[in-house]
Design a binder for these strands. Structure first.
Lengths: 241, 241
DNA sequence: TCCGCGAATTGATTTCGATCAAATCGGCGC
DNA sequence: GCGCCGATTTGATCGAAATCAATTCGCGGA
């Protein structure tokens, strides 16, 4: 599984946060050399297994993190256990929210993941001194807002087949570094997670995978490995204009 | 219909953008007296009837606006006409997106509305000179992101009755200045708009209104006027913890 | 290589919301 | 007040996805 997006390692700029090791699309990009050195002293690199909770819903959120590798799912849950994945964060997104004590969602790793964390208060101090950093955070929040709203259309108005095709299209475009005509990737989510992301049941997701396979839109090997021969065809099945 | 939230006129701070007339929770709050005077010269106050398109999806977005009164709906549409309302903006929110030429959604007034517009490039210039302003914009985008994600749970995992109750609860809490135990308000949206917001059909929305009325959760007069005797009871029907 | 077990698929049936169709309401102009 | 017309409600039926229920798959350990 290639968990990285091509832009992570493409930059040659030498000054980096030591923990992050490479200049990262995350917060580091907006910082000065001195700030990066300072940040390095307080940052820790962590490896997390798939299925690890990073922060619980409403839990105190002491840290802020760059996602270096892997996929993190943001989840909202109802008291009776119904669950909705409200966002997927891919490297090199960042995780956490400045100026807020409590996390509005729970965050859990979907795949094995590496993150680079540092104290939230430290980030807040950096933000108040560095307009560029806040600008960067603002831009990410706008990107996430657009993605959330696109997904609202998927959740509210698409049928099961279109939902599943939309999910596969999303993963192909966010996750396969060389999506051009076709695409090959490993699914970062289980069928249960996909169902929670699409507002469907596991069974319905499975049936739609089978249907897309029989229609030749995708090929599947070993449950997780997906081949999309024609990305435009998949996009049409997703009902995207 | 009381379209205003209580905080619009509660402030006594004298320096204001002339077009906005009152210091506003929108962009003006972060500006210096000189900037406000400058802004005034380029801003226009407009009244828009219910159902007016403010910006079309993918259309060039020349202006930025404070919503002074009324409700604006943000809509995403599929090629075949299926439609989803992805956000409702109430006064004193702002409308528009800096640093982006094209609007990702179409924006249409749901009620009679007053906005105060000024050129988008002017806002961008102000933003780059005023970190506080960008901070304010960032905070609003985070608020919208939380709302969008809450709504994703509603769209993906709630049944029709919970969806309609969630909508009523949203309006009661955003729109009735004195929601404490109970709440009284006029719906800013038609049944068709409510359906587009909830990912349901008009008929289903109507049936659920009837059901909530028969269960005594709400009273309805003249289709638009709603009385909620017990807001907590409504909240329970909405499936919110 | 075989077993065990959770994940995924497949099948049968039910149910909730969509669709199709027909009243009824309510605001407005006359 | 009356009639018109779009908005809303109500009713009957249909269908897509949920639910319930077995298999089957696939990976890891013995």
């Amino acid at each position: 599984m290639d968990m990285q997006r091509k832009d992570i390692h493409s930059s040659e700029i030498p000054v980096v946060c030591r923990a992050c090791e490479a200049r990262h699309g995350g917060v580091c990009g907006a910082l000065s050399p001195e700030q990066l050195v300072d940040l390095s002293k307080h940052s820790t690199r962590k490896r997390l297994e798939a299925g690890t909770e990073v922060v619980g819903q409403g839990e105190d959120m002491g840290a802020f993190a760059n996602i270096m590798r892997g996929v993190v799912k943001l989840t909202r849950m109802m008291p009776d256990g119904r669950q909705q994945i409200v966002g997927l964060q891919f490297a090199p997104d960042f995780l956490g929210r400045p100026f807020v004590e409590e996390s509005p969602h729970s965050a859990e790793t979907a795949t094995d993941t590496e993150i680079c964390t540092f104290p939230r208060q430290m980030l807040e101090r950096l933000v108040s001194r560095t307009p560029d950093l806040e600008h960067k955070l603002y831009q990410q929040s706008l990107k996430e807002l657009d993605e959330a709203r696109d997904w609202m259309l998927t959740l509210g108005r698409k049928n099961a087949q279109e939902k599943v095709a939309s999910f596969l299209f999303l993963i192909a475009t966010h996750y396969d570094p060389e999506t051009v005509e076709g695409s090959v990737f490993d699914l970062p989510l289980s069928r249960a997670d996909i169902a929670d992301f699409l507002g469907l049941t596991i069974e319905t997701v499975s049936r739609q995978f089978t249907r897309l396979r029989k229609d030749g839109v995708i090929q599947i090997e070993n449950n997780r490995h997906v081949i999309v021969p024609d990305i435009d065809r998949l996009q049409q099945f997703a009902g995207i204009d």
